[in-house]
């Protein structure tokens, strides 16, 4: 599928900041599942491209003058393939490194207890079936609700409240998989089709012996389709976040985001 995307992030400040520095993981990865063409990032005064340890394309963005308004616009075209969620990638990253919990994917007693019920599924039916079961049961257990959590909420905290958004679902999914020692990681990207509006999105990938990485989107109860665009991978939100920033001065930040799919066509 050929997808043309325009994604604008707009920061407005009540009191101007003297300086803003950011890492932007807003450039889709070029791999066997998606080809990226004519991708541009504009907005910040200065942009420097580099590649992080996970192989994500990152831009170091610097705004060095006083500003109370900052726009980051990414725009471009991606051609995706439908692979039923399977990503036969060799990205050089050993799957074994993705069983390490981070502050955001940390489990709790309650979450562990919830995760325990999937042990037999993993043992009897194998990884793939186990992963589908986890995805389905998670959607039953936790309600999708925006505004109930923040990007600093850990899986354990979200499980306490039983409410969260896509990144919370991804963290929960990863935490449960880690509990069973199934390598799993966080994906940030776009979802461009289906029932809802096009949006920034987050889901998970787990490593299945013999198949490779397989994507699971517990917030939407499906494996990633060709309407998913992968931007970055990492342990969790913190390591794959589309935008992380620090600012000198400034107050009262408001952020608005629009993701538009300019065109979408089967190729």
């Amino acid at each position: 599928m050929r997808i043309q995307i325009r994604h604008e992030t707009h920061f407005v400040l009540e009191k101007a900041a003297r300086r803003a520095l950011q890492y932007l993981r807003l450039t889709p990865r070029n791999d066997s599942n998606q080809r990226v063409g004519n991708w541009t990032i504009t907005g910040p005064e200065q942009l420097t491209r580099w590649i992080d340890g996970f192989g994500n394309i990152v831009y170091f963005a610097a705004e060095n003058t006083d500003h109370d308004d900052l726009k980051i616009i990414v725009e471009g075209e991606v051609e995706t393939k439908e692979t039923n969620g399977v990503l036969p990638l060799d990205d050089g990253l050993p799957p074994g490194m993705f069983v390490r919990p981070t502050a955001l994917t940390k489990s709790s007693k309650e979450l562990d207890k919830f995760a325990d019920q999937f042990a037999s599924s993993l043992q009897k039916e194998g990884e793939l079936s186990f992963l589908h079961t986890v995805m389905n049961e998670l959607a039953q257990e936790v309600e999708y609700a925006s505004g109930e959590s923040t990007v600093t909420c850990s899986a354990a905290e979200v499980f306490d409240h039983k409410k969260g958004v896509c990144q919370d679902f991804a963290h929960l999914f990863i935490a449960i998989c880690h509990h069973h020692n199934v390598p799993s990681r966080y994906v940030s990207g776009y979802i461009t089709g289906g029932a809802g509006e096009p949006a920034s999105h987050a889901w998970a990938e787990s490593y299945v012996q013999g198949l490779g990485w397989v994507s699971f989107d517990p917030a939407n109860l499906q494996c990633a389709t060709e309407s998913y665009v992968r931007l970055a991978i990492g342990y969790d939100y913190a390591t794959a976040a589309p935008i992380v920033g620090v600012r000198t001065g400034g107050q009262g930040e408001k952020m608005s985001v629009t993701v538009q799919v300019l065109s979408q066509s089967q190729s």
Binding site: G53, G92, G96, V99
Partner: peptide, 17 residues
């Protein structure tokens, strides 16, 4: 492998550099 890969001192930031 897990002794290294899941160790907190293992820094993915260094991979391939």
């Amino acid at each position: 492998p897990d002794l290294v890969l899941t160790n907190e001192a293992f820094r993915p930031e260094m991979l391939g550099l």
